[in-house]
Nucleic acid binder design. Structure first.
Lengths: 325, 325
DNA sequence: TTGTACGCGTTATCAT
DNA sequence: ATGATAACGCGTACAA
């Protein structure tokens, strides 16, 4: 493949001039400019972007760390990131981790190796401490509320969102309340657990371990929850379900087996997935797409200017009352 | 940041030796090896991957071109690609195109600039001719059946899949048959259109333009289709719906407005989405995840060995009869 | 307006 | 086993 030196020879100019022409710099005579472009044409030249990256010390690539892609929540976040990245001429490098520590560390190492200019972490397993250690290698944006460390973050206040949904259920007269969650680790999950404890105690209701359903991510998990629920001696009368997919699974399976919702079981989902709207599921709308957008913008603004208005940004959640609670 | 020369100086060896140690080459004395690793530690050294890429002429990065991410079909394909990429130590660079020609060309230009070793095209708008022109710049895998050009392809025979579903409907006595599709352009869509024409004519039934519903991608589109259907003077008695999301939208809205399925309207979805299973939707199971896997493997095998068993691979589709047709 | 020369950080070849 | 040195291809400071 032809390189910049071949072009220079062909066009009868210096490599510096070639570079200037290629990058649209001023102070190049029209005839040399023309000669260079003709050489480009003739030699079928194309820039080697790797060399550009090396020479400039930046890549206009942003890494995206996330456990899996095939999930409405994460694919919405990426879509938001992607849209903004496109807009500002950045590219996205994907790091799927499956919540494996090994994978997460590898992504961080890539930041250290300067493969990308920054990293957006959608969700993770390793401790904040680890991320903190990598902050000197490049800007990192976390999609969660962080205490004790000084990170760039864009987040939803899951504690408050949970509190609001719980209070709503309590106002409706519920005291036996449980919830479904994707996993129990991770700050978002822990915030929810705390809210659950706090609010229930507040009204003298009993938080029960067996009313917390773990591993709830997909539609099928909702079916499983419903099967467990029906088999229980003491059933909760209401469930907070941190994914509308799961909530939909619950509602659909309930219909099938003749459990009346919300009379026998009230359900509040999270996300405001189109599926929740279609099924009339009461839900806490979460701005996932916007979360991705803002995460990218924060990173981008930092990369381009070296400063930001504020390092933390909170996004609102909103309870949408429909038919299931 | 410390570089390899700093290491050499610190360890009292040459850069060549440093490189050997860093890459685990043999023929290095134990003491020098130790000295180098100590220098790495002391100077907090990390490789610059951009320089590695430049020097080696390859990146172990694969590009993925797709219109959007936030859709069950595409996110399943990526998940398949991602899983295999992880396994073989490759990284994924995302090119979201929104089916805009401009974006697609940009992705191809990136291949030309050697930003990645190869490209997987999940779906696209531009003509095959364009892709053909870029084949010399790196291996390209298309996820569709291609005639007239010699591409790497992994595909589902959508013509046959459609034929089989249509024949099933006809055997059930349906003659007024329509279908829902994501878009009308693109080889997969055209194969389906051809199957529709061919099979209906075969039995003397009438293919009708107004029974072809375009722009059907998401759940909400199913609702829209149902509203259009109910408003029709002459309604089809059966619909092939090329996305289970849309099929679910149809089925759910039908329930709501009291349209009996399959009696008044038979529905066959595509994908075998969990939602289809939960709703008892008859569907044509399509191996999206596997498609992604195979696409990556094909590319990977070519990159590593320079040859493949065969450049084209067909994946099976299977009709799963449930309750809606 | 143009060219020379060096820097970016590695890898790889070729001596020794 | 080890070291000089030449690629890899581009950007740019500096000089002219």
């Amino acid at each position: 493949m032809a390189n910049i030196r071949d072009l220079a020879k062909e066009a009868g100019v210096s490599v510096a001039t070639v570079s200037r022409v290629l990058n649209g710099h001023p102070y190049v005579s029209e005839e040399k400019r023309k000669a260079v472009w003709e050489a480009v044409e003739k030699l079928n030249y194309s820039k080697n972007i790797q060399a550009v990256h090396l020479a400039k010390g930046r890549t206009a690539i942003v890494g995206v760390m996330l456990p899996y892609i095939h999930h409405p929540y994460f694919s919405a976040v990426i879509e938001g990131i992607s849209k903004e990245a496109l807009r500002y001429g950045y590219q996205l490098l994907l790091f799927q981790t499956n919540y494996e520590v090994e994978r997460e560390l590898e992504a961080l190492e890539r930041l250290r190796m300067r493969q990308m200019d920054g990293l957006i972490v959608c969700s993770h397993e390793v401790d904040w401490e680890v991320f903190d250690a990598y902050q000197e290698d490049g800007p990192i944006v976390l999609c969660e509320q962080v205490e004790r460390y000084d990170f760039f973050t864009v987040y939803i206040d899951h504690y408050q969102a949970f509190v609001r949904a719980l209070r709503y259920l309590i106002k409706k007269g519920h005291r036996r309340i449980g919830y479904c969650i994707g996993r129990t680790t991770g700050p978002n999950s822990q915030a929810r657990a705390a809210a659950y404890q706090d609010v229930l105690r507040e009204v003298g209701a009993l938080p029960r371990r067996q009313w917390v359903f773990d591993g709830c991510l997909f539609l099928e998990d909702g079916k499983r929850v419903m099967e467990q629920w029906i088999a229980m001696e003491e059933r909760p009368s209401a469930l907070l379900v941190t994914s509308d997919q799961v909530a939909a699974g619950i509602v659909l399976h309930a219909r099938r087996i003749g459990v009346r919702i919300p009379d026998e079981l009230a359900v509040i989902g999270f996300d405001n997935d189109p599926l929740a709207e279609m099924l009339g599921i009461t839900t806490v709308a979460l701005p996932h797409f916007t979360l991705g957008e803002r995460a990218f913008r924060l990173l981008h603004h930092w990369l381009e200017t070296g400063r930001v208005a504020r390092k933390q940004e909170e996004l609102p959640a909103q309870l949408l009352v429909r038919d299931t609670a």
